[in-house]
Amino acid sequence: MENIIGIFVKSIFVDNMIFAYFLGMCSYLAVSKNVKTAMGLGIAVIFVITITVPVNYLINNYLLAEGALSWLNKRYADIDLSFLSFIVFIAVIAWIVQVVEMVIEKFAPVLYNQLGIFLPLIAVNCAVMGASLFMQEREFTNIGEVFSFSIGSGVGWLLGIIGIAAIREKLSYSNVPAPLRGLGITFIVTGLMAIAFMSFSGLTI
């Protein structure tokens, strides 16, 4: 249990998707002009990461990894399909984004209207794919850890995008040098935020 909470906190603050690995930067830069839309996209990302990463974990452990097929038959014990993982992961992500979109449209139309335009964008959000690939690399021992890792990564991403959106709202009133306006100052502010987040490194629970 402590391990699960530890992974959760670590994936929010120490291994933050935006500030430590620069994942999901495209939508982070494109959709951070105001806090409200940033919030919508962040929640959609948490939603999709929390579903896709555990599904990919099960697929990886029971179909793709070396010896994973041995539950079917002893003869398959030395089959290693892990080279297929990229294509399977991206297919699963694209598929789940579609399913999530349809389910939300059917059962929660209000939420669908809020998230609507962001959902399809998430299929190519690097943070979602990155979380699946990190899950494969870090070799978690059980699905509880994978869940806490995926929720934590999503929450960390949400924190990042809300922070930059709030700062950009204020920045639009300040007198930034003309060549630095827009993209340039956003990168530099993100860098400064990342330095602040580095103070969490070494945090253990």
Partner: peptide, 8 residues
């Protein structure tokens, strides 16, 4: 060599 400097 820390990550933030790449952004800056």
């Amino acid at each position: 060599i820390l990550p933030p400097m790449a952004l800056i």
